[in-house]
């Protein structure tokens, strides 16, 4: 079984978000970029576990982005991925998924494991888009995955419970919490990272149907207001006038 893991390069969770160029662009200066946690913790780590248990022969990373995101790909190598592909281009989820799908079509993967969403654009779309392009079955927000032969058994959370799904390979899944535990890359993996092959491919079709016109920062969390337990009137008043929930 060959596994393809699409990965994103995203700002570190503790980054201070700001915008440039009249709020039309994300301001990259001073930002540390990381491997999207959901791609790393859930998709890639589970893929590595499948490889370590002998069920997968190879784990390939794929990333659609510019050269400055290569350190993030090498972080994936440090975690154990065998090789990687960078498709040189930038675009929205549709664009990214189409590029990944084209590559996957040509190179044949049995299992494509995406993270449930990116922490920058929070779209949760790339996995399903890839399934759409490839016409593969898709299991979204899977919390467990095992593979026997060409059959994958998965679990996903649904309203009020979990359901167990069986699906045939080739298959696309998006991975959510529960799939695997976060790993710390070990020193050997880090030192091996620079020796792993990274192929750079030019982007194909340029279908990019959406673009961001402007960004705005969300209003920060306001401070806690303490109300005396005997002063219910004030609480009711505040819930009505400030929180506007009653």
């Amino acid at each position: 079984m060959k596994i393809l893991v699409p990965i994103s390069n995203v700002p570190d969770t503790t980054s201070k978000i700001s915008f440039a160029n009249n709020d039309t662009e994300f301001n990259k200066s001073g930002i540390t970029f990381i491997l999207n946690p959901y791609d790393e913790w859930y998709a890639l780590v589970r893929a590595m576990e499948l490889k370590e248990s002998g069920k997968a022969e190879k784990v390939t990373l794929i990333h659609v982005g510019l050269a400055d995101s290569e350190p993030t790909i090498r972080k994936g190598f440090a975690l154990g991925a065998d090789d990687g592909v960078r498709i040189d281009g930038e675009g929205d989820a549709y664009f990214v998924a189409e590029q990944v799908s084209n590559y996957a079509k040509e190179n044949g993967y049995d299992l494509i494991m995406a993270g449930k969403e990116t922490i920058n654009y929070n779209g949760s779309s790339v996995g399903a888009l890839i399934a759409g392009f490839l016409d593969y079955p898709f299991v979204s927000l899977a919390t467990k995955l095992d593979v026997e032969g060409t059959t994958a058994t998965l679990e996903q959370d649904i309203d009020g419970g979990t359901q167990i799904v069986e699906a045939q390979l080739p298959l696309v899944i998006s991975c959510a919490k529960g799939m695997a535990e976060q790993r710390i890359p070990n020193m050997k993996g880090i030192m091996a990272a620079r020796t792993k092959p990274l192929t750079i491919v030019a982007a194909g079709q340029n279908n990019n149907f959406t673009n961001v016109k402007s960004f705005a920062l969300s209003a920060g969390r306001t401070t806690c207001k303490m109300i005396d337990e005997n002063n219910m009137d004030e609480l009711v008043q505040l819930l009505h006038t400030e929180a506007k929930v009653i």
């Binding site: 350190p71 090498r74 972080k75 440090a78 976060q182 710390i184 020193m187 880090i190 030192m191 990272a193």
Partner: peptide, 17 residues
């Protein structure tokens, strides 16, 4: 360099986790 910083990150993560 990138590799050295990755090693440091592994140590930081170990301490944190």
């Amino acid at each position: 360099n990138e590799e050295q910083l990755m090693m440091k990150k592994t140590c930081d993560d170990f301490i944190d986790q």
